[in-house]
Amino acid sequence: MPRYAMVIDQRRCIGCMACVVACKRENNVPEEHYRTRVVEIVEGTFPKVRMELRPELCNHCKNAPCVYNCPTGASYKKEDGIVLVNKKRCVGCKACIAACPYDARFIDPRNGAAHKCTFCEHRIKEGKEPACVTTCLSRARIFGDLDDPQSIVSKICAEKHLRILIAEAGTKPSVYYLSLQPLT
């Protein structure tokens, strides 16, 4: 069974937002809502200024608070590590939204169910990569199977020092960051 993960190389991200657009187009994300976002943090005073570009999305956590806080079992984790929502079971209680430390979920105004990144599960089934990964022109997003030692993701994880977001939440995310400066 594969164990999917994503590595985001912040050194390569140019903030073009193509991933945000591709995700919206691919997944028919409702108006004014997004499954992924790019956070630009500009720090310092001219001329000593630095910028961090940080694409953010659902972290598909191993220890997912959204899954264990869901009262109806609508949020669940697949064996391959992808966290999904069963819309038929979702009551729209918003417990998962409150529980997510990454603020990755929202309510789909069209049907009232919780909505989030699925790592483009439908594309993975067809052997393709998630839309944001395919479209990223600087190859800042890398997707693959951690259990496959030949995958690029596995090699990066083995060779580089990767970081995760909000490590103190103890969620064990499947999205890793490769950056020059330490992440907050």
């Binding site: 997004y34 956070v39 500009v42 720090e43 310092g44």
Partner: peptide, 12 residues
Amino acid sequence: MKEIAITGANAI
């Protein structure tokens, strides 16, 4: 000084 801009910001 820190300036934060988010593209793709939900109400969330």
